[in-house]
């Protein structure tokens, strides 16, 4: 009984936090299902990719591979590069995911950008366990993405209203989470460094190669300024 109640409490606390992800994933997941269908890959394939691959923006990039010649190695290497940012997420979650036992497998498997932005920022309310809370968030986000992909693959073509610009929900979510981090005065220098390094990288390396140089610069700045930032 106690066990069941703690899961219900965790779900009740986690669900509201995931609503922004629900809207964001609904748009992007449906768009992904549509895009795959437009390239001749029906809902079975788009759902399989979403369920096994679960890679968000990488799945979009993988569409370009699915429509050219068979190149699994190219797909693998491109994924490593595009998703290298996930290593940041893991590093940030070492402490928060400590001691969670078996739950670490689904938690780490589904640690996407969105899920990370929530589990790194939101704390479980009193009386709710970390394991239950983080699992609810992670599995809810995961089911939104897979469900939205299925929806896009099946029904997407019937949607009539103009969805141009709906993907801005993603940007808006990151802006809000940035503002949430910004509330902590001690985190501001790091936040500013993140923006500055990314802008420099964008200008120097261009939009397609921005991520990795930006990450290297961020690491260098944060480690270089560690004594000041973490004092």
């Amino acid at each position: 009984m106690v066990y069941q109640r703690s899961w219900r409490m965790a779900f009740q606390a986690a669900f509201p936090a995931t609503i922004p992800v629900l809207t964001g994933y609904l748009c992007l997941g449906m768009a992904y299902g549509l895009l795959m269908a437009a390239n001749g890959y029906g809902p079975l394939w788009s759902v399989l990719m979403s369920a096994i691959g679960f890679g968000g923006s990488m799945q979009y990039a993988a569409v370009s591979i699915l429509v050219t010649a068979f190149g699994p190695l190219q797909a693998f290497l491109l994924t490593l590069m595009v998703n290298a940012r996930h290593m940041f997420y893991g590093l940030s979650m070492l402490e928060r995911y400590k001691g969670l036992g078996w739950a670490r497998f689904p938690l780490i498997y589904t640690l996407s950008d969105k899920t990370f932005s929530l589990v790194s920022t939101v704390d479980p309310p009193e009386g709710v366990g970390r394991r239950e809370f983080f699992l609810c968030i992670s599995l809810l986000d995961y089911s939104y993405w897979v469900g939205a992909t299925a929806l896009g693959g099946l029904l997407g073509s019937f949607i009539m209203f103009d969805t141009t610009g709906l993907d801005f929900a993603l940007t808006a979510l990151f802006v809000v989470l940035f503002l949430e981090q910004w509330k902590g005065k001690e985190r501001r220098p790091a936040g500013a460094a993140g923006v500055a390094c990314a802008v420099v990288s964008l200008v120097v390396f261009g939009p397609d190669n921005l991520v990795i140089p930006a990450m290297v610069m961020i690491l260098a700045v944060l480690l270089g300024g560690r004594k000041l930032l973490c004092a």
């Binding site: 940030s92 070492l94 940035f178 790091a190 936040g191 923006v195």
Partner: peptide, 15 residues
């Protein structure tokens, strides 16, 4: 690094 990376990463993701 784990303490300050989330803030920096959100900045990166916005850009």
């Amino acid at each position: 690094l784990g303490k300050v990376l989330p803030a920096a990463t959100m900045g990166l993701l916005v850009v």
